[in-house]
Amino acid sequence: MIDFKTKYGPWAIIAGASEGLGAAFAEALAKRHLNLVLIARRSDKLEQLSHKLRDNYPIEIINHSIDLADFEQTKLFFSELSIDIGLLVYNAAYAPIGYFENIPEHDLDQIVNVNIKTPLLLTKLVSAKMIEMGKGGIVLMSSLAGSHGSPKIATYAASKAFNIILAEGLWNELKRHGIDVLASCAGAITTPGYTKAQNAKEAPGTLDAATVAEKTINALGKGPTTVPGTVNKVARFFMGRLFSRKFAISIMDKNTQKLS
């Protein structure tokens, strides 16, 4: 715990922290005695989570309600922080479900802003300070869907592919500054959003949010990517190494048809 706090403390910022996986990350890092900056749109959820964490852990917490699709608002908020951020966890995501022909242009703009522009901005801002400190960590939550074409969530999957490639490149660039970068390629997670979208039984390899958060944090510093869960690791190996791209996409098509 002391080593973790020394390496990635004293403050961690979690984007998309109000519930589900973001809240699980907050608790996992609170257990490791990191102070937290929690940002998301829903201030009521942030307050509930903060009260819970303060009651259980001796840490400081800063909450801020922010629309992570707003590039300038996010940049302004970060510029006003006067604390040393040692760890960034970017968990926020916008994932409209539907075939591309039916996705409104506004949703396309939201995907780019939330899933690509803002994690890119925050990564740039936190890494600059981390380079000065000579330590730190950056976790970009991605998805197994980002490994290949995924019908009905094609735009979401494409944005998650961006984060995988970004993390892999920065893992190599920033390690000489003592900064660990990681893309977590998660499968299905039992979050409120997934439960709402999934009309049938859980997908194979589905994990709870606390397990994904712990496995991701434990993988930090061990390589550029991680895939939480044995079933998901096997699935990624088969889909990426043994199956043809055409066959992998057809499998994804069958799995995503149930989403709504």
Rank of each mutant, 00 (worst) to 15 (best):
L88H: 03
T190G: 05
I217S: 01
K196R: 07
N172W: 02
L144K: 03
Q198R: 06
I131F: 10
R54M: 11
I14Y: 06
T230Y: 04
Y8H: 00
R32Y: 05
S50I: 06
V227C: 10
L125A: 03
L220K: 00
A200H: 11
L242H: 07
S244R: 02
T74D: 12
K5V: 13
H33R: 02
A203W: 12
T195D: 12
I164P: 08
T123M: 07
T226C: 14
A128R: 03
D70A: 01
S142M: 02
T6E: 11
P228G: 15
K117R: 13
V227K: 12
L242R: 00
E72W: 08
A183M: 02
N172I: 02
S159M: 04
P104D: 07
V126F: 08
G86F: 03
P119Y: 03
R54P: 15
G223R: 00
Q73G: 15
I85E: 06
M1T: 08
S244K: 03
E132D: 14
E214A: 10
A30N: 04
S143E: 10
T256Y: 13
A93I: 08
L170S: 10
K124F: 10
L174D: 07
F237C: 10
A219I: 03
A40K: 01
A157Y: 06
R41H: 14
D55K: 09
G146R: 01
A28N: 09
N113L: 07
M239V: 10
H64I: 05
A154Q: 05
Q257C: 11
A93W: 02
I39K: 00
L68K: 05
A17G: 08
K222N: 14
K246F: 14
E173Q: 09
D55Q: 13
S143R: 05
S250Y: 07
V112M: 13
I97H: 09
D109G: 15
T216P: 09
N115R: 01
I189Y: 11
K31C: 11
K152M: 04
R241E: 15
I251E: 14
G193R: 00
P58D: 12
G86W: 01
L49D: 07
